[in-house]
Each structure stands twice: as structure tokens, then as C-alpha cells.
Design a binder for these strands. Sequence first.
RNA 1: GGCGCGUUGGUCAAUCGGCUAAGACGCCUCCCUUUCACGGAGGAAUGACGGGUUCGAUUCCCGUACGUGCUACCA
Length: 504
Amino acid sequence: MKVRVRFAPSPTGGLHLGGVRTVLYNYLFARANGGDFILRIEDTDQGRFVEGAEQYIMDCLEWCGLRPDESPVKGGPHEPYRQSERKHLYHQYAKQLVDAGHAYYAFDTPEEIEKMRTEHRKDEYSNAQYDTTTRVLMRNSLTLSADETAKLLADGTPHVIRIKMPEHTTVQLTDMIRGEISFDSSIVDDKVLLKADGMPTYHLAVVVDDYLMEITHAFRGEEWLPSAPVHVLLWQYLGWKDKMPQWAHLPLILKPDGHGKLSKRDGDRLGFPVFAMNWKDPKTGDLTKGFREMGFLPQAFVNMLALLGWNDGSGQEIFSMEELIMRFDISRVHKGGAKFDFEKAKWFNHQYIQQTPDDELAVLARPYIEEHVTAPAEALLKKVIPLIKDRCTLLPDFWAQGHFFFTTPEITERAAITDKWNDQKQAFFSEWIYKLESISQWDAVTIEASFNDLAAAQGIKKGDIMLPFRIMLVGGKYGPGVFAIAELIGREETVKRIKGIINK
RNA sequence: GGCGCGUUGGUCAAUCGGCUAAGACGCCUCCCUUUCACGGAGGAAUGACGGGUUCGAUUCCCGUACGUGCUACCA
């Protein structure tokens, strides 16, 4: 049987890094097994629909290089791929379950349910569930006569269809990551399968669509584990048990500090991205920063995510997509959640910047340079890249570490010059700018030789004037070799920057 | 509260009964570099707790603790 997996996001906002990891594991598994990777949009909640979210999700997948074989826009043999467009499909299966006695109609209003919850709560911490013990108190086709039910239905009374969970049945499932897991059916409530608006809930839709789309392996977050028995029962009740996909519940990605699932707010609070790309909420207008805009390379982002909860046991950490496809093994995925470490994420990006060819880096860095200077010379950019790349972790660093090549810097560490300034240094630089004018060969070696010669002639220590010279050219105490900088910015600019300091 | 899942340094983690417990990030020291990085050499830092099983437990089993998730006509 051909392997078929799916990523089934709900289009409600930005794509969380945990979501991207789920896509990635799906993708790697599909590719390694010659299978298909499907993108299915789970938009059954009309109330939470967010304009643009679906396109955004697809853009994120594209950026990460995780292209679906079948999707709402690409199409495929199981169209449509949006659950809202599949609405008509679900009712018959819900009906089938009712007819078989595995589900029932429930006519309770939200107020009635709320009343039941508060009146029958077992303790102060929880509400009563609509389940095997409370359903006999409610208005549903189990408590109503067949005639009453038929009349309510005929009158178009708003209703839902709920699964009738069996009492004291042990539901077992085998998880590819966790092994055997079992639940007592009595503890899970009678989940709504079909909502009053005719839309299915996740529980029905995921089973029906996974069946119809011939999904063989289903990967999802650990938060779904508690409702897994509902899904297993549904597969059984619908008569599809031998077609049920193999499950894998992925561990959660947790907050770096404190506790709990990593959320968008943690990113805002701690200063790192949580979404793959910038997300602008169309309702509030709030912009949430993404890894892409923060200057991550997609390959680094993907590599980092792959290693968050998985490793191949060899100690290797840098993997190309092809290597990941070959080495990834779902059974080696960790069971426990992992705290997200932004420092490690940056380390991955640094590694990828170092291994990216200079001309590709020039293309990637250019936009960040162009935020500050118009039309930087390609030749200069190409010479600058190798000089500064090893001190660049994120793409914007190419500006932070190389701005002085393109424009006269602001002197941010003036004290490094003025604190120990004296007539001797003043004399050195005043003299040196004349020497520079007559240098025959404008390159780092010749410039440095001239510098050394004059220092020796004037009896001044080189160490005393190197730092001031750097500040003049760079503005601060950082950057590649000063003479290389002088070579690249040229004679005129070098002299100008020295004069800018000594003529004050 | 109930139920599920989990628990090796600060973080990510290897180990599938023999451990003097890998490696990486971060941190510290030194070297290199007349700057900052990169690089190199070192260092500090780990099996939640209690019982079993076993010649031998980080590894297997059971409790406890802790963490985390779920407990919606949301996914």
C-alpha cells in the first residue's frame, strides 16, 4: 500500500514552529517511503476562520521547501482539500453511526448544557461532561421517544449528533513513538460529531477524510492523545478499522523558561520568533515576527526543527534535506516535550551561513544592505561577504558587521580614541595621510607597510595607534582587519575618515 | 479533581543490563588575533525519589513526586 500522510492545519493564524515541525516529519516520512504528502485545510470552525491564513500557511511551506503533492490549490485525486467544501460528505457518515446505535441526536441548547455542567460537577475543579452518566438527563434521541425525535427533526429543531461512548471498554492503540496506549472509554465524553450548523467537528472530519483520502500514517501533536480513543472507536464503528492509519503523537515544544506549550506570546515576551514567517492579524493589525524576517535561512530553520525532538544517534547535527529524508526515523522521535532554545537556533543559522557559497550570501545579504544604502556595488559586496561572514549569525548582521564598507560610519566608541589621545598620535596621523596619498599600490599589505614604517620612524608604538585607526574606519571596536577595510573603501575614503577625526 | 503522556547537566540529548554516563548549545579559563568574531586547547555542570528483579541497574518492573497535555457545537 502506498504511504500517504497529511498535514491538516486550521487556518486561524500564523504557523507555529511546532506546526512546521509536524509538516516536516510528515514530509520526511512521505519522501523516505516514496509516498504522498497531502495538505488538507481543516476549516470547519466558521467562527475562527481568518482571512489570508490559508495562503500564509502555503507560503510558509513553500519557504521551507516542503511542497505538498496534493493541496487545495494543486488539486489531486481526492478533491476538494478544504473541509468546508466537503461539508456535504460528512452527514451521511454521522447518520450511519446514528442508525447503527453508535451516535445519537442531541437537542440541548447551550444553556441547558451549561446548567447540567454546573449542577452535576463532581468537584470544584471541573465541569460535568456530557457522557455516559449525564446523557440520560438530557434531551436527546436516547431519552426521547422515536416519535418525539422524528418530530423535532422534522420541525428543523437545532441539534447536533454526538458519539455514544461505550461504558467500561478499554480502547487500545499503538503509537509509533509511544508504543501501546490504552484508555477506559468511560472517561471520555460523548463528543459532538456533527455541529448544529451542519459542519463536522474535528473528530468526525479527521476520521472521514483520512479514510477517504487513504491516509496510512497520521502524525499530530501530543495534545490529541486524550481524544484518540474517540477516533479509534469511530474507525471501528464506521467499519474501516483495517484501514485506520498508524498514529504518531509528536511531543510538544515548550517555553524556554517557565512551563507550558510555547506560544506566540512567549516569542513577543522573550524576543524571538515563534511563527515561520511574519504574520499580520487582519483583524487587529498586529504583526508577529517570523523566522524568515528575522534573517533565518530556511534550510537552517528546517534543520533546527528536525533536531528538536529527534536525532539519529550519531551525534551529527547538520543535515541537508536529502540526508534528513534518508536518516529520519519516526521511532527515534523523543517522547518528552522539548524546551525551545533560541540560542541553539541561532547556532544552526550561523552554521548554514558559513557553509553557504559567497555569491549566494551576496544575494541573501543584499536586501539588508539596501535597507540603508541605495544600489551598493556588486563588486564591493562580493569582497565584503567573505571578510565578515564568520561574525554573522542572522542575515541582518551583514549590515551590522559590514555597514562601514558602504557608508561613512558614525563613531560610536569615540572614547577609545580621545581618552588617550596626544600630540604624538595627532602628528602620526597628520603625517600618514600625506604618505597615503602617494602610496603606489593601494592594497592592505602596502598600506600596512606604510603604517609600520611611519610608526617606526616616529618612534610610536603600533599598538597605540591601531585601535584609533580602527575606530576612525569602523566606528567601533569590531570588524575584520583594518588594513583590509582600508583597501576596500579606497584611498580617498580612508583619508577622509582619518581627517574626520584628527581635524576636530 | 479525573484521565493520558512524560522525567539523563541550565538547554537539546546519546545509551537499547557492564558507565571512568557521548556529543552539541550556552557559560568559564587559556591560546590565536595589536579590535570583534572565527578557530584551537581545557573546565564547571546530569541519571527526580523510594522499592523491587538481577552477579550487576541510567537502562527492566512497581509505587511516589514533579512536569505537561486534555477535560468546548476549537482545532
